[in-house]
Each structure stands twice: as C-alpha cells, then as structure tokens.
Design a protein around this nucleic acid. Structure first.
Lengths: 113, 113
DNA sequence: CTTGACACCTAGCGTTCCGAGGCCTAGGAT
DNA sequence: ATCCTAGGCCTCGGAACGCTAGGTGTCAAG
C-alpha cells in the first residue's frame, strides 16, 4: 500500500478510532490503527503525535496526563466539536471513496504483478 | 469533499480513466473524471497537466499531438508499463480503501451537520 | 469585439506525512 | 552491572504533492 495515500485522511481516521474505543494514548492509537486495519496502517510516531497535537489545537480532542499508569501517558479523548467533525469526515470519506470507486469500476485492470 | 484527499490517489485515477476510455487529451480527462465521479472530482488544470507530464516521464503514458482536431490537443495513452502500473495501483487502492473502511466501521458517527 | 468555452502550460506556495533523531522508564537477559 | 527490547513521548527538516494564480492561444457566438 503506497504510503502517501494516507494524506488528507489521517485526521478522520484518528477521530474514528477514538470514537470506536474511547480515550486512548498516542502509542495505543498506533496499535489500534494497525490492528483494526489488519496491519495495513503502520503509522510512525512522527506522523501520529504531530497530528494529535494539531487536532487538540483545533479543539477536536482534549488530552490529560494519565496518573493511573506507571509510565507517563497522554490520553486523548474526543470533544463534542470533535464528534461533530467526525460526522463531517465520515461523510467526506464516503463521498471520496464512492467517487474513486466509480472511477475504478470502469477500468479493466491486469492482475497486479 | 475535502480537496487534499486526492493526494496520493491521483496517478491511479488517471490511469484508470484512461484504461476505461482509451486515449484522451488532458482537458477531456478532467471532464471524464468529473462525470464518472458524479461531479465529486473537479480537478483543476494545474493538478492534471503536471501529473500527466510526470506519468509520461515515468513511462506509464505516451502522448502525441492530435492532428485531427482543429485545436491543438495532446492525446495521452497508456503504455504497457502503464497498464501494469494500473494493476498495482488498483490493488493499492483496494488495500487502502478496505483498511480505512474497517476503521470507519467501528466508529459511531453523529449525523454530519 | 468581447465574452466564454476549449486547450495547453508553469512557477511558487502551503500542507502534509515521514525519517531520523533524542529523551526517559521498566523488565528481562547476559 | 550492563545490555537490549518494548513502551512512551517529542520535534526538526525534508520531500512530495496538489492547487492557486497567472500566462498563451484558438474558436464561436452575441
């Protein structure tokens, strides 16, 4: 799977995974994305952490340092604005995926090497 | 539909549309992408032309100036390498779309505003 | 003779993701 | 004691990509 394909889709996927699981810290978001995608999404930390910071800056997520765990963890959670953004992202994904799918449907493809 | 979503997917879509229709010139590729996507993909010329040049440089497309039409048109066509690349792109799209879909499946989304 | 569709092109900008590196703790192996 | 691995956070700089904005030019219609 070409790596740059994720561009422009990351925010939605992060919101989606948090909506599925409830609050999570960054490291486990990475693992969750990987497992839920069947191993297709193995996103590096340099991708995830800045994205989480951006989403928090935009008010779609809140974070707190977890006091429960021995190790320090920053736990992220959807805000209500984040939940609304999730709906928009979901719809944008549907539109995009549907459009792309209908382009692909017309094409006769050779079996991939 | 967020615009940056197309990033990383354009090459495949261009190859796919050319595989569906046969040889086309740039301007009509734009129209074809728009109509086949139900109006979702309205890609500007500044996106399409550089991409076509890149794909030609990579040997996935060939072009010739059409002598038939009154207006000058550069007509693009898939090469055999392009056809093979199409298969790979198609597979990459399936993997990506499937992975993203399974992330989204888990999320409970509010109705988009 | 001006507008709008058709048709091509490119330089530069902004965004985005990623690679590489750094920092730290805990636990197991050597 | 020392190393290694896994867990956990962070950031800087680069590369890639698509888009904006601008340009050239033809042709038909008003």
């Amino acid at each position: 799977m070409r790596a740059e394909m994720i561009k422009g889709h990351l925010d939605g996927l992060l919101l989606a995974v948090l909506a599925s699981t409830g609050p999570l810290h960054g490291y486990s978001i990475i693992e969750e994305l990987s497992s839920r995608s069947g191993g297709s999404f193995k996103l590096p930390e340099g991708t995830i952490y800045p994205a989480l910071h951006r989403l928090e800056r935009e008010g779609l997520l809140t974070s707190r340092w977890s006091q429960a765990a021995a190790r320090r963890r920053r736990v992220y959670e959807l805000t209500s604005r984040g939940r609304r953004a999730l709906g928009r992202e979901r719809q944008a994904w549907s539109a995009f995926a549907g459009a792309a799918e209908s382009i692909w449907r017309g094409a006769v493809c050779p079996p991939a090497a």
